[in-house]
Design a protein around this nucleic acid. Structure first.
Lengths: 142, 142
DNA sequence: TTTACTGCAAATATTTTGCAATATC
DNA sequence: GATATTGCAAAATATTTGCAGTAAA
């Protein structure tokens, strides 16, 4: 991953700074979703100070390099995840919980798109609904 | 649609105000995607003044009623669309263009989810990549 | 007459930007 | 040595909130 990022920086004549690499490592350590604040706090708690502006800009680069993906589930903070295989997100519109789910065959859809001249990079499926917990809570209230 | 919204308001003991109905009509007239500013400007150009706070709150209600859907493609303004059948969005990460596309069989995925206790409401598929135009532009530059 | 709604302005929150000092190439 | 990057603070933007006056039930 680090290699890929360094290659990317070189190809764009951007600089390999300790901040950028540290942010990448931090992203890789985070399982699941993370956001700017989480990264900021983790780094800060290690005594490694990086400004949020730098985190924002590094995440932009990491996204362009195809290493992370930006996820927008709500109007508030953008979330990020390490770009791996396509997977779906189940989003509970009641409590906001987000669960990842693998649905077989989804990637196949992308192949069909080549036809219209669109070159797909990755597919994000969000399924909005109500999670088990919230459904049970509602039932017990009635 | 208006009937559905009025039913929803009644069921929640909310009030049927001219602003809410006017905003609903405005959404229905908009083909494709719209946002708070677009609605505000359309209404304003007709001499119908509605505050943005009211538009925000009405859109929330319309979303809860299942009449519109909130779409977040980027960090900036939220977009909305009339909730119809599930369709996919092709998003060009270079120029930002968004094209709607129908992919057969996608809705079937939702049925499978009942298993894990998640009650799906609707599915949103976003396929990120590069559109025909941008691909051609890149080629001619090389 | 009770309760909810609107508009306005202020508050909040996230992201972006400008600039001087500094680090990378 | 040239150029890009960092951190900071300020700016820009979108959305939410509080409250007084008003309208719907």
């Amino acid at each position: 991953m680090e290699k890929k990022f360094i290659e990317f920086l070189k190809s764009r004549r951007l600089k390999k700074t300790p901040e950028r690499l540290e942010i990448l490592h931090c992203c890789l350590e985070c399982k699941g979703h993370f956001d700017v604040d989480i990264l900021y706090n983790i780094l800060d708690s290690r005594g490694y100070h990086v400004s949020k502006a730098t985190i924002y800009s590094s995440l932009d680069l990491l996204a362009e390099a195809g290493i992370v993906r930006k996820l927008l589930f709500d109007t508030h903070q953008a979330k990020y995840e390490i770009a791996g295989t396509s997977h779906s997100h189940l989003i509970c519109t009641q409590c906001g919980e987000i669960v990842e789910l693998n649905i077989e065959g989804l990637d196949l859809i992308m192949d069909k798109l080549q036809l219209c001249g669109f070159i797909p990079n990755y597919l994000s499926t969000c399924i909005y609904g109500r999670c088990k917990n919230c459904t049970e809570k509602m039932r017990s209230l009635q």
